[in-house]
């Protein structure tokens, strides 16, 4: 706890240092009205800057950069934010040259909770970045993936059918996803998904989403946290990431320079 207290103090001090040179820094702000993403400016009360609950701040950065094409913003970014920004940069959703990345290493507990493979931003690849906190080892892999691997094919189908029968089509998984940014979403296209039906058609609804996550999903776990029906979505996306890794040697979020394999063919 003491270590965490020091880290947040350190982050606030660095944000204060950097603010004069930037048009603002995106981070979470907690007030009596709740916690939300916020663009901190000079003079703001930095004691309100917090790290939790986790929220995809990369989406806020993308929105701000598009709206203010000359501005230079900063972001207080965890490993997952950084990975999302990498994939967004490759798809012209953010401009790395106009971004200052104030990286934060997650704690061992956080890494374990998220089963996170890279619990700190790789700052070397960002034009302007620094890292606060000490990077920790990767968390253990999601145990449900191993359980799933042990299932015969038919059992896997039953597993997903049961899980997706709980879906209430709230679109929370899509709306929270930092790498879901299409203006026209296939999930809302009646040619692909019959509208107004609950649970949404199995397996098309969720498999369309999964296919679109191939070589994109950066394992931030936000979709699973957002799901009101407790569907273990990261299992599906962990499997997808594993396949993409094996087939194309591509790890989304790892390398700002590596071209996404599906962009070269399908996108």
């Amino acid at each position: 706890m003491a270590e965490q207290d020091t880290l947040i103090e350190q982050i606030r001090a660095h944000v204060e240092d950097k603010l004069p040179a930037l048009d603002g820094i995106v981070a979470l702000r907690r007030t009596s009205e709740g916690t939300a993403s916020y663009l901190f400016h000079e003079g703001d009360d930095l004691s309100q800057l917090v790290l939790n609950p986790r929220y995809p701040l990369s989406t806020t950065v993308s929105m701000l950069q598009k709206r203010f094409p000359e501005a230079r913003f900063g972001i207080v970014a965890r490993g997952c934010d950084s990975r999302a920004l990498v994939e967004m940069a490759k798809r012209n959703q953010i401009d790395p040259d106009r971004l200052y990345l104030l990286g934060v290493a997650c704690t061992a507990e956080e890494a374990e909770e998220c089963h996170c493979a890279t619990p700190a931003p790789d700052i070397a690849q960002w034009p302007q970045a620094e890292l606060l906190g000490t990077p920790v080892e990767a968390g253990s892999p999601n145990p449900i993936v191993a359980e799933y691997d042990a299932m015969p094919l038919e059992e896997r189908r039953v597993f997903w059918k049961q899980q997706f029968s709980k879906c209430i089509k709230c679109y929370g998984c899509r709306n929270i996803c930092p790498v879901c940014f299409c203006e026209a979403c296939a999930l809302e296209n009646p040619a692909w998904v019959e509208p107004g039906v609950l649970a949404p058609p199995f397996p098309t609804f969720h498999l369309i989403k999964a296919m679109h996550m191939a070589a994109r999903c950066v394992a931030c776990r936000q979709c699973e946290l957002a799901c009101p029906s407790h569907i273990p979505l990261t299992v599906l996306y962990d499997l997808m990431r594993r396949d993409v890794g094996r087939m194309f040697g591509y790890v989304p979020g790892d390398d700002l320079e590596a071209l996404p394999p599906l962009s070269l063919t399908l996108e």
């Binding site: 209430i168 609950l198 407790h230």
Partner: peptide, 17 residues
């Protein structure tokens, strides 16, 4: 419940799990 009170349903589902 899932359609009219999805957040209540969410707690029911956790109970079922």
């Amino acid at each position: 419940t899932t359609e009219a009170h999805p957040l209540v349903a969410s707690h029911v589902m956790e109970g079922l799990e």
